[in-house]
Computed example of a mutant assay.
Amino acid sequence: MKKVAMIPIKLNNERIPGKNVKCFSDGIPLINLIQNACLHADVDKVYVYCSSEGIKEYLVSGVEFLKRPQYLDSDSSNCNDIIREFIKQVDSDIYVVSHATGPFTRSLSINTCIEKVETEGYDSAFLAKRIQEFLWSEGKTINFDIQNFPRTQDLTPVYSETPGAYVFLKETFLKYDRRVGINPYIHEVSEIESRDIDYPEDFLIADAIYTEIIKSMDSSYWGDKYEKR
């Protein structure tokens, strides 16, 4: 089966200007990490899908640039809109969509999701962080009885999607018009791997993790085929 990875990028982020190409303390752009993770995953091609050709200077060797329509940069567009347009331009049996804001995504995790979709009958897969905490919403408990609360380890876990990888069959997206079908595989990842960068403080935390933890690790963190560049 043909497998293609797509990294959607826009350069006009509001909350963190230039977020996707913002550099860590050592000068490595944020976008580099997810490109490398995708390059060393089990895919045939990796594309950065961006409306601006200015992104080309940030491409890692082996990653291809594909220009997308400018309207997809608007706040009213979501990832499904981007995928819909990408599928028109690039044909594949399986698509992997990974975001630069999940910089600590491992190639091994992407491959696990691909394998589940390709060989085990799941129509889609994604990475998620397990949350097993006392949760509230609008002044009410969500997952526990306030009068007879259990130990945290006995709470029913919920899962928060991470931006690292969404994997799905082409037919799944065409049928449901979304990246997650009706039989998804949820691959649980660690606190570090689940890091998402939405706000300035998120980038500061990610920079600290990258500088103090990730850079000192060998390639085994990322996956068997990964080589840091």
Rank of each mutant, 00 (worst) to 15 (best):
R68N: 07
N80I: 14
E118F: 04
K88D: 13
G121D: 07
R130G: 03
S124R: 04
E57A: 11
L66E: 09
Q132C: 04
A100K: 01
V63K: 05
S92I: 00
I131Q: 09
S77Y: 14
K67Q: 15
I55Y: 09
D75Y: 08
D73G: 12
L135A: 08
K67P: 14
F104H: 03
S98T: 05
Q70S: 06
Q132G: 03
F86Q: 01
I131A: 08
E118T: 06
F86M: 05
I82D: 01
E133P: 02
W136N: 09
D42P: 01
I131T: 11
S109F: 02
Y58M: 04
C79R: 15
S76H: 14
E64K: 13
D91C: 02
N80Q: 14
V96C: 08
D123E: 10
D75W: 09
E133Y: 12
V97F: 08
Y122T: 04
C50F: 00
V43D: 00
D75I: 07
I131P: 08
L127C: 09
D81A: 05
S109P: 05
I114M: 05
T112L: 05
G62I: 07
Y71G: 12
I82S: 06
V117K: 06
A37S: 07
F86H: 02
T101H: 03
S124N: 09
G54S: 10
S137D: 13
D81M: 06
L127Q: 11
C50P: 02
E120C: 09
Q89L: 15
S74N: 13
N80K: 15
R68W: 03
T112V: 11
S137L: 10
E85N: 15
N78R: 13
S107L: 03
E85P: 07
I110F: 06
A37W: 00
I110A: 03
Y49S: 01
N78K: 12
